[in-house]
Nucleic acid binder design. Structure first.
Lengths: 203, 203
DNA sequence: GTGAACATGTAAAGAGTTACATGATTAG
DNA sequence: CTAATCATGTAACTCTTTACATGTTCAC
């Protein structure tokens, strides 16, 4: 349980439809929280209702169908129990870092710089959004939520600085020095060159 | 394809067994990159070999079984093609932020502080590790990999600062002010209290 | 009147984890 | 001799996304 719990969490803010929940994840989640598709949400809502964590407070079955869910007492209890459990340490899956660590001298550094520039753009947009969010006059952000937003700002700013520095280092060809006690860089390039030369032969 | 590609990436450093690959993800990934279980790795290795991206260079079938894989020319080509593709923006799933944003006044703030203290510990350990890694005298870290490590340092340091500030704010009860144009905090607490009171009645 | 946004839902496929099962070697 | 580490692998399960299917309402 965890997607279920985040649905309960969203529902704790205000009664919502499946569509609302998706929207809520869409923008808050935009890089900061979470993400979820309709294919997950609707079946989970059904299940949560069956299990008595949520109930339908408002159902339009004619015209534009619409089903609004609200937490039951059991749902509130379950949510607050979950909030109290130590959160798992976040798992980051960052393709850029993976790719960067696997880069080598025989590849075009400009491509890596382009990756960084694209990252910079998205991160910059996100930072703008996060900064303006608490003063847009419409969104609800609790004082606790405000702490989470500050996290976003801090992290995104740190990331932008790192991107800037990395681009500089790559452009000036002044990368920080790594550690290579066994000459692995040399060996890697040799293995790779040998393989590439074979290409025409038997591949 | 993406787990497959990270296996190719690891294999590009040096020929490895499934066990080695898991270990490689285990520590580098420790919060910074990625993660992977044996249940994913072994079937993928088999598949990658069948498809001609990797081959067995060393197989011990007696005694302690061991199978070491290496990239084929096709594997190198595929890896480098992948490295060139724009990396997806990382999706973070951070339970702590989700829980923090869902916290409310009727809950014990000390529990949230405890969550932060635990996070601080893990993040601190990770930062120590990342800082010492490039000078431990044994690990191989390329100059590009060094950039990725700097990202880790930057991000983890920013996180520690934020944790410190957040704990302070919570302890002094001086949270930053959010935005609540429709009195949602009040409504939320009212909905929740109504539900909790009903508990004995029909739940 | 038409395109965007609102709204719900299912089925199949894909991705990945957990638990299980097995055994060898090494360090103390 | 025994616990830790090295080492491989499968099966069942869970979780999640993608693609499809359908219809309404609102703003221009």
């Amino acid at each position: 349980m965890s997607i279920e719990h985040s649905i309960l969490a969203i529902l704790s803010y205000w009664p919502s439809t499946g569509y609302d929940i998706k929207a809520e994840f869409e923008h808050k989640a935009a890089g900061l929280y979470w993400g979820m598709s309709y294919g997950s949400i609707y079946p989970k809502l059904k299940k949560l209702e069956e299990q008595g964590y949520i109930y339908t407070i408002n159902e339009e079955e004619t015209g534009r169908r619409k089903k609004q869910y609200e937490l039951t007492p059991k749902g509130w209890r379950e949510l607050e129990k979950w909030l109290t459990l130590t959160p798992a340490y976040p798992v980051v899956r960052d393709e850029l870092l993976m790719k960067m660590s696997t880069w080598h001298e025989d590849m075009d550094a400009q491509v890596l710089i382009d990756h960084l520039l694209k990252r910079k753009e998205t991160t910059g947009d996100l930072l703008e959004f996060v900064k303006n969010w608490p003063t847009n006059g419409t969104s609800y952000i609790s004082d606790y939520g405000m702490l989470a937003i500050r996290y976003g700002e801090t992290r995104l700013e740190a990331e932008l600085n790192w991107i800037e520095e990395s681009i500089q280092a790559l452009q000036k060809n002044q990368l920080p020095q790594g550690q290579d006690p066994q000459d692995m860089t040399k060996k890697l390039l040799a293995r790779r060159r040998a393989a590439v030369q074979q290409e025409g032969v038997n591949d």
